[in-house]
Design a protein around this nucleic acid. Structure first.
Lengths: 109, 109
DNA sequence: ACTATACTTAAGTATATACTTAACCTTTGA
DNA sequence: TCAAAGGTTAAGTATATACTTAAGTATAGT
């Protein structure tokens, strides 16, 4: 079943699980930003930021392009739709099932 | 800003970032299941499963109740709405902004 | 050509995470 | 009452992750 494309889900959620990376995403959600500008507000080194960006790119949450010596990063919606879809699908299923269950916790199978 | 409730977001995404934990959630999405039944199909020890369950409970993705010596686990939608909301909010914002940008950054792909 | 800027790579460290096995507690049922 | 079933705790290990500093590489400005 949905175990084939799960690799991407894995990477996206793992990426979102880090608060620094989510901070980066918040910054990028305003507008595209260069690597060093992203690093500014963060209290970690520039290489560290770069590594986070690699993670974010690898799972389709961020896209970037280098022009001259400046790399500009922006949100890539692809990764988000992977994550969003996974959650939405499960949520729909549970809501149905939980509904059907009523509130009885003790269903002895 | 939204930096206050972020702790929960952190934990939920981190929890979802592990494929074994997502497998557990898949199982629970069918119906409530006991700890040892959850462990059955998984190729890890029972204590390991238990630890995953603790992570899932700590972030509101799973709820459980012990009756006699059997602990029955079920999906808790709370955690999912945290994650779903975070994604939905950002997605809405980006879609607006990216739209406004047009294809400003020319797409190399 | 020379220097500064902006990123990139490399290499190492410290902590977190997922797992293990062994031992322990509770409840159930002969 | 005793043993098995179901779960829990403890303790240790091995790998992954997030970070660091130092040393590149390439482009821009003078």
């Amino acid at each position: 079943m949905p175990t084939l494309k799960q690799k991407g889900v894995d990477k996206v959620f793992h990426a979102l699980g880090d608060s620094t990376r989510r901070e980066i995403l918040e910054m990028l959600s305003e507008k595209p930003v260069s690597v060093s500008l992203l690093a500014g507000p963060l209290k970690i080194s520039l290489p560290a930021v770069f590594q986070h960006l690699q993670v974010l790119e690898a799972c389709g949450l961020v896209r970037s392009e280098k022009v001259g010596r400046v790399r500009t990063c922006q949100i890539d919606p692809a990764g988000f739709s992977v994550a969003g879809k996974w959650i939405a699908e499960r949520r729909a299923m549970w809501e149905r099932k939980l509904d059907r269950l009523g509130d009885l916790l003790d269903e002895p199978d």
